[in-house]
């Protein structure tokens, strides 16, 4: 058994909140650089260049890449052999968010009741997804999520007869609908299967994968490739102003599902597709 103290978690989460919002992951940065070289539209090329300069400025000045420093979304893997001392895990994560968003000068974007909209003032509560795993590690991944791209995400309750073509049609429709609003170029996170809530979670998780990665199932990897090509053929381009770079990547995650169902979720990840992971 391993003991992890409450204060260690608070400290790690605080640092993650700040670093995730200041420093764009290298894989995303490299993908943006490459798309800048390949983009056919002159306006699109300039936009991609500025997006890279923006990430450089944020890194150098230690300031948020985007003013929307997001909902603090966490994926937590808790080893069964871990004992957390000094308080509740959820409270430790929220305290880390509170401290990180304050000390890092990050924007507080969470309102209490969605209909009455009073800001909570400290960006809590976080949205936390837990997974119990074997062993004695506590792994915490933060993926701050901006509102612009999140608003353009969709769930489709497809039925089995719609098949691969149905999935493709829905994804292209969702990307077209998201269009200029989602801060293009995007990473498209897709969840297929599970049920209503599971597919949405898969789509969100898909956004945290390394940008160069492919699904382990060759058939899904092929579908990722085809969708990326078809999305970029739409011509929507950087910021929606026309061009050949609409998406940087398409990531699909799947899960078994009911004989009657084929749920599909599409989570748009803007070009500031931030995430950061630590292991305690």
């Amino acid at each position: 058994m391993k003991i992890v103290h409450f204060s260690e978690i608070v400290k790690a989460v605080k640092t993650m909140c700040i670093e995730a919002n200041y420093y764009l992951p290298e894989d995303i940065y490299d993908a943006l650089k490459q798309s800048e070289r390949l983009e056919e539209s002159p306006i699109g090329k300039d936009i991609l260049k500025d997006i890279c300069i923006n990430a450089d400025i944020a890194k150098e000045d230690h300031i948020p890449i985007c003013q929307d420093t997001g909902t603090a979304v966490f994926f937590v893997k808790l080893g069964q052999e871990v004992y957390i001392e000094g308080g509740l895990l959820e409270e430790a994560i929220n305290e880390g968010v509170r401290q990180g968003y304050e000390e890092g000068h990050l924007r507080k974007s969470i309102v209490e009741n969605p209909l009455y909209r009073k800001n909570t003032g400290d960006n809590t509560p976080a949205i936390i997804h837990y997974e119990i795993i074997a062993g004695e590690n506590l792994e915490i991944l933060i993926a701050p999520k901006g509102g612009g791209s999140e608003n353009m995400s969709k769930v489709y309750m497809l039925t089995p007869s719609q098949g691969i073509e149905g999935v493709k049609k829905a994804v292209l429709e969702a990307v077209s609908f998201a269009g200029p609003n989602a801060c293009l170029p995007v990473v498209v996170g897709i969840g297929i299967g599970g049920n209503f809530e599971k597919c949405a979670l898969l789509a969100k998780k898909a956004l945290t994968r390394d940008i160069e990665s492919s699904n382990e199932d060759m058939r899904m990897a092929q579908l990722e490739k085809e969708l990326l090509k078809e999305i970029n053929n739409l011509g929507i381009g950087p910021q929606g102003l026309g061009g050949t770079t609409t998406a940087l990547a398409v990531h699909i995650e799947t899960y078994p599902c009911h004989i009657a169902s084929m749920p599909l979720a599409i989570n748009m990840g803007c070009h500031v597709n931030r995430h950061k992971q630590v292991r305690l």
């Binding site: 923006n54 400025i57 948020p64 890449i65 901006g146 200029p180 910021q239 070009h271 500031v272």
Partner: peptide, 13 residues
């Protein structure tokens, strides 16, 4: 007119 969405650091300058 549109500014680049997500380029908050650059625009702050």
């Amino acid at each position: 007119v549109t500014a680049i969405g997500g380029a908050g650091a650059l625009l702050s300058k």
